[in-house]
Design a protein around this nucleic acid. Sequence first.
DNA 1: GGTGATGCTGACACTCAGTGCCAGTAAGTC
DNA 2: GACTTACTGGCACTGAGTGTCAGCATCACC
Lengths: 196, 196
Amino acid sequence: MSSEGLWSRTRRAAIEEISEVAMSLFLEKGFDATTIDDIAAAAGISRRSFFRYFGTKEDIVLGNLAAEGLRARDILATRPDGEPIWASLLHVLMSLDAEPADHDRLLKISEMMYGTPSLRARHVEKHLQWQADLLPEVRRRLPETGDGLDDLRATAILATAIACLDSAGKVWTERRGEVPLHDLLAAAFTAVTSTS
Amino acid sequence: MSSEGLWSRTRRAAIEEISEVAMSLFLEKGFDATTIDDIAAAAGISRRSFFRYFGTKEDIVLGNLAAEGLRARDILATRPDGEPIWASLLHVLMSLDAEPADHDRLLKISEMMYGTPSLRARHVEKHLQWQADLLPEVRRRLPETGDGLDDLRATAILATAIACLDSAGKVWTERRGEVPLHDLLAAAFTAVTSTS
DNA sequence: GGTGATGCTGACACTCAGTGCCAGTAAGTC
DNA sequence: GACTTACTGGCACTGAGTGTCAGCATCACC
């Protein structure tokens, strides 16, 4: 506990502080216009050290997203086995978005994300990782059909659920956060799963 | 025709030739391991000129994809107005994949694409552009509900259709092209639109 | 057939992201 | 106090992508 304890606490604090400083710069000057040198200088660390805390500039904004995939997997595992897959997935995605968070700041971050191609791309990459994280559990919950396409079905359903999340996020941002994300997500699920 | 004719014909030929050379290098050494200097040297042009033909290295592989979005939009516009939206979208996506193409080569390219994060990300970006291209027409084809969520519904349905295409492509690649893409795409649509 | 506008080309220099390496140093162990 | 461990800054490097400029081929016009 001793060695691990202090090092990792210090590390967490450093990540927190660098993120804070960097996000301020992003919101002030824009994501692309802010260089890593700017961030390092503002945070009082060297360029080299920055890359010991973050793999890429995008990770500052999307940092927690990777862990969320595993959290989603764990939440899905707690759902009752008989529950329809769409209901389970909707519940999982709803659960992820439980942060009270500063509304205005979140909106600005979202706008930056949807408006910055490199950020958008990394965001999508993280969601692809979520799909990989969740696939086995979704696969397990679908009935066997014996036609060899069970993997495809699981993949498609999962990809759809996450597409709904992205769509809801996009519209939430376009509407400047006026409509609750939960409502948008539910409506997206309904639109897709009610065959019309 | 004169001025435009020759320049643009030369340009097209150059793009064709550079692509050819570059794809060979990619398939031989891998995408990431091939630098733009390698490509330029092999194609007998300068580094600088390469960037006059392609914006990024990824564009070599994904070059035609941007135009496909507009083609998809045009195909969708030809579908009868009464047709259910899912049927229309399935038809559109089926139509895009009409190339006979060298099967082995296509498979290798697909494997490279799904195995290279930066390529995968750009690929998804192009699909996001398709969504933007198709959205108005999908929006037009959906019934008005008056609840202000028509945009969200159109976005979600479109994102889902493209998620199905991605899923089908992924499974097609994993199965080494043994199952026809059309079959996978149809199965993905069925899995998603039949509420279970 | 010469002339000037247009547009492609290579060369050079530059910015920025990201990585490898190394020496210095602070913290934790015995 | 000696030893290990792990963070740190500095330096050099690769690789993508951009701006600039001078040289040269092409085309339209006279």
